[in-house]
Simulated assay, not measured.
Amino acid sequence: QTNQELSQHRALKTREKQQNNRVRHKTTVQYATRPDLPRLAYRKLKGKGPGVVFLPGYASNMGGLKAEALEEFCRSLGHSYLRFDYTGCGASEGQMDVLYVLDELVDGPQILVGSSMGGWLMLLAALARPEKIAALVGIATAADHFVTAFNSLPIETKKEIEEKGSWSFPTRHNEEGSYTMSLDFLKEAENHCVLQSPIPRDGDVPWHVSMQVAERVLSKDVDVILRKHAQHRMSEKDDIKLMVYTIDDLIDKLTTLV
């Protein structure tokens, strides 16, 4: 074998070892049992604070690329990390409950990382539990998205949805090519809007929403990072690198302040 072939072989073995280590060290699924409420599935990594909590997007779960990458990152720093399935999604049952995670499953202030709809829930959680929040990182934050998108539909279409009891709309993010949302979900969402003025939207959430969110956050310590060619889910390798580097800087800043 040539030196180049030997180097390639060693590199391959190193990658395989790293992959095996990731599988071996992967956190196990746990279930929180709550009186009169459905079970909630989560994976928890113990470590120092501030901890990180990942909130996935609509129809997503804790097994996504961003959620997995954040666990590896937090493990490398020794920080605690929790990712979970909204009840009604993934391995959980029933209705969504982010506040339960903050109240019962983590200790001390947390860095909330919310993707798409998770960013909307992240903002609502911060309003409800400010003492539990160390910082917020929104990834294509879909604040008020479903409500505004539904309200922008023609009257005839809205009537059809109300009669049917559900709304199906196109998406590029699953094999079926569409998501279906219940009318009950939409009506409940109307009670939890965080932005006041109507915002133009296309199929996904445009970058203007991030600017709207930044304008409404009272803190002066707010950064908006725009990636011109990134897709809504921000799941490409370079997107995940940006997310990890951003949280790395944030943790460094928070621990330095302490």
Rank of each mutant, 00 (worst) to 15 (best):
I240S: 02
R129D: 05
T180L: 05
E175N: 05
G114Q: 01
M234K: 09
L242Y: 09
T255I: 15
E93M: 10
K241G: 01
C74T: 04
N174C: 07
F54K: 03
T255R: 11
N151S: 11
F146M: 12
L124Y: 12
P38T: 06
A69L: 02
Q110M: 10
T148K: 09
H173T: 00
Y86H: 04
Y58P: 00
P170H: 12
R15I: 11
M117W: 07
S76F: 00
R39N: 08
L218H: 07
T2F: 08
K132Y: 09
E156F: 04
T27Q: 13
E71V: 07
V244D: 08
S92H: 08
H79Q: 03
T14L: 13
V98D: 07
S152G: 03
Q19T: 03
G177N: 03
P56Q: 02
A143D: 10
Q95R: 15
D223Y: 05
V194M: 09
V98M: 03
S116H: 10
T87W: 00
D238I: 07
H9Q: 14
N174P: 07
W120L: 06
E93Q: 14
L183P: 01
A41M: 03
H229D: 13
R201P: 02
L124T: 11
H173Y: 15
L55M: 10
R201G: 01
L99W: 06
C193S: 12
Q19K: 11
I139G: 01
G114Y: 03
D36H: 14
P130V: 12
G108N: 07
V222L: 00
V106A: 05
I161W: 03
S152R: 12
R39Y: 10
D202T: 13
T148C: 05
S7D: 11
N21T: 09
D204P: 09
N191C: 04
L127Y: 06
M117S: 08
Y42M: 00
V29Y: 09
L121D: 13
D221L: 04
D97M: 04
H208N: 14
S80Q: 15
G118T: 05
K48W: 00
K187H: 13
I139W: 06
T148E: 11
H79I: 06
D204S: 15
V213A: 09
H173K: 00
F146N: 02
P38L: 04
T141Y: 03
G119Y: 09
D107T: 07
